[in-house]
Amino acid sequence: MLNARIKLRHLQAFLEVARHRSFARAADRLAITQPGMSKTIKELEEILGTALFERTSRGVALTQAGLTLLRHAGPAIRALEEGVNALGEVRTTIRWLRVGALSTVESRLLPEAIRRWQQAEAVEAGVNVVTGPSAFLLSRLRRGELDLVVGRMTEAREIRDLAFEHLYYERLILVVRVGHPLAEDEPLEAHRLEGYPWVLPPPQTTLRQQVDSFCVRHSLRPPGRQLETLSLPLSHRYTLASDAVWVAPEEAVRDALDEGRLCELSLPLEQQGGSVGLCTNTSMEPSLALEDFCETLRKVAADMAAAAT
């Protein structure tokens, strides 16, 4: 049974501090003073008999107890908000899914799955898609702010207590514009890459870990001219207009490769590739809409795999 001394304000304050990693920013978000925020968190910690946060050089961080509470408090508050909103919802025929998408699935898997799912739905169905790095998306999933995260995540330490379902493997590949000086080098010697700009995933992302491993294997130092981004349109345009070497998810550039606008270099960055799949929060009860959408994703992934063989 929930301790009667724990109030909604305690949990709201806890979630805001966990989200912003700052008492000051959390206080601003809830329109209370910073001393008031500190007092509320202290009350919650005294009720629970454990510390929820610890101070670091970059603000505050969750303790293990704080992580455990976050896993359950976020979905619980979200469920309560949805229940209250449902009471006043006028458009009762509209269902919404909140999906986090990594760049590995933005070009083919996710658009096709959304198209099929909305076509098959008997009622109006909306999908809200949030993009970003895995750490950001998985933290939102853990707090109950997303229903699902789709992408390449199996090596992300942030998964921890979330559930991951494998769909297929996808490689990171090195691509350049047609006519690039390296395009005809076969085999391509790794040190030749150092003379050209690189387009890379940002640091602290799952994809960047693979790039760093590749550099270690080949004793490479990335050049000073780098573009770090997860934006596929920006990467694509920059690569087409320059001599840059783009470290790209194969799915993201498949159409450009097939149409002859980009070409893959002969040096493999990885052989099998990483596992692309679905990540869900097991502490949240899945809706029928979410289960249907996940099944659609599985079918689209199977069709993509069959087409590739």
Rank of each mutant, 00 (worst) to 15 (best):
G88E: 01
V150S: 03
G277A: 01
K7I: 08
N128T: 13
A163C: 11
A76N: 03
K39H: 11
A302W: 08
R21N: 08
L69Q: 03
L188E: 10
D255L: 11
D147M: 09
R261F: 07
T239M: 11
R91M: 10
H236L: 12
M1P: 11
T229Y: 02
H218S: 10
V129P: 02
A79I: 10
A289K: 00
T296L: 09
K42Q: 11
T92W: 04
I32Y: 02
R157H: 12
H166M: 13
G100K: 00
Q64S: 07
F293C: 05
S287A: 06
T131H: 04
M153F: 10
P268S: 02
A24M: 13
Y238E: 03
R221W: 10
R261K: 12
Y238A: 05
S139P: 06
I47M: 02
A101Q: 00
R160L: 15
A305L: 06
S103C: 15
L193I: 09
V17F: 03
E43A: 04
L48I: 05
R19G: 02
D28H: 15
A4N: 12
Y196C: 08
V211D: 07
D212N: 08
L110E: 04
H166V: 13
N3M: 05
E145S: 12
L11A: 01
E165I: 13
E112Y: 15
L30G: 05
E43W: 00
L11S: 06
P181V: 01
A65E: 11
A51G: 06
T50K: 12
V175L: 10
A183V: 01
W96D: 14
G88N: 07
F293Q: 00
H72P: 13
Q12W: 11
A252T: 01
L207F: 10
P181Y: 03
G274D: 07
L102K: 04
G151S: 07
G260A: 05
S235Q: 13
G273V: 15
E170W: 01
P203N: 12
S57C: 13
T296E: 05
A125C: 04
A252S: 08
T282W: 15
L232W: 10
R237K: 14
G273N: 02
Q226F: 04
A61T: 09
L257P: 03
R261I: 12
R143L: 03
G100Y: 02
L8P: 01
G49T: 05
A101I: 09
